[in-house]
Amino acid sequence: MNHTVFKEWFISQLIPNIPPSSIIVMDNASYHSSQIDKLPTTSDRKTVIKDWLIEKGETPGDDLLKDDLLAMVKQHTSRWPRKYEIDIIASKHGHKVVRLPPYHCQYNPIELIWSQVKQYAKKNNFKMSDLKSLISEALQQVTPENWKNAVNHAETLQRDDTSRDLAIDNFVDSFVINLESSDEEEL
């Protein structure tokens, strides 16, 4: 899979087949995340970073080091939020893309559905020549109830993780020791 293939599928297969004003949950696979006007990184040449800043209305001095230029980029990232090509395509069709946090694919219900599809293919001892028809069969086996269960599972994981995070925060906060002197602690 690459961005070109994904974009073609997104435009020709997904967009025409979903209800108006849909919310599309997207993970952070590289082919889902092709950026428009990508922020410069350490792998860019100094002139590229400087030109990008100038294009954004900044006036970086000629004496700045590459690290200084990148610090300028980082300082203003809230003014230049990331824009993803797929998000813009979706919004032009009245849809919204919601991106999952990086490294949290377990919150995406589609992962459970793909697992179901793969298990179907595995049970049917597929040959590569039969894979396309077998996947089509497997997708037809996916029911609204399967989707409901997958969404409920993802929501449960999110609630459990949030509860665990809050418990850890509260536990850690109970160990914080204030080292500032107070009126009660005279030496």
Rank of each mutant, 00 (worst) to 15 (best):
M1R: 06
M1Q: 08
H3V: 03
F6T: 08
F6A: 10
F6S: 02
W9L: 04
F10A: 04
I11T: 05
Q13P: 03
P16V: 05
P20I: 05
S30N: 13
S33M: 12
S34K: 15
S34Q: 13
Q35W: 00
I36D: 11
D37I: 08
T41A: 08
T41R: 11
R45S: 08
R45M: 07
K46H: 12
K46L: 08
T47E: 07
T47R: 06
D51A: 07
W52V: 02
I54T: 05
T59L: 10
P60F: 01
D62G: 05
K66P: 15
D68R: 12
D68P: 03
D68V: 04
L70V: 06
L70D: 05
S78V: 09
R79W: 13
P81K: 00
P81H: 00
R82D: 09
R82A: 11
R82E: 10
K83M: 08
G94F: 10
K96L: 10
K96E: 07
V97C: 15
V98D: 02
R99Q: 03
P102I: 05
H104C: 13
C105R: 02
Q106N: 11
N108Y: 10
L112M: 15
L112A: 13
I113L: 06
W114G: 03
V117K: 00
Q119K: 14
Y120G: 00
K122P: 02
N124W: 03
N125D: 07
K127A: 04
K127Q: 11
M128N: 13
D130I: 06
L134Q: 14
E137A: 01
E137G: 00
L139D: 00
Q141S: 15
V142E: 00
P144W: 03
E145Y: 14
N146Y: 14
A150L: 05
A150R: 02
H153G: 07
A154S: 15
T156D: 15
L157Y: 15
L157H: 13
Q158R: 06
D160I: 12
D161S: 11
T162D: 12
I168A: 12
N170C: 05
F171G: 00
F175P: 00
F175E: 00
I177F: 13
S182M: 07
S182D: 11
E184W: 13
E185V: 15
E186I: 13
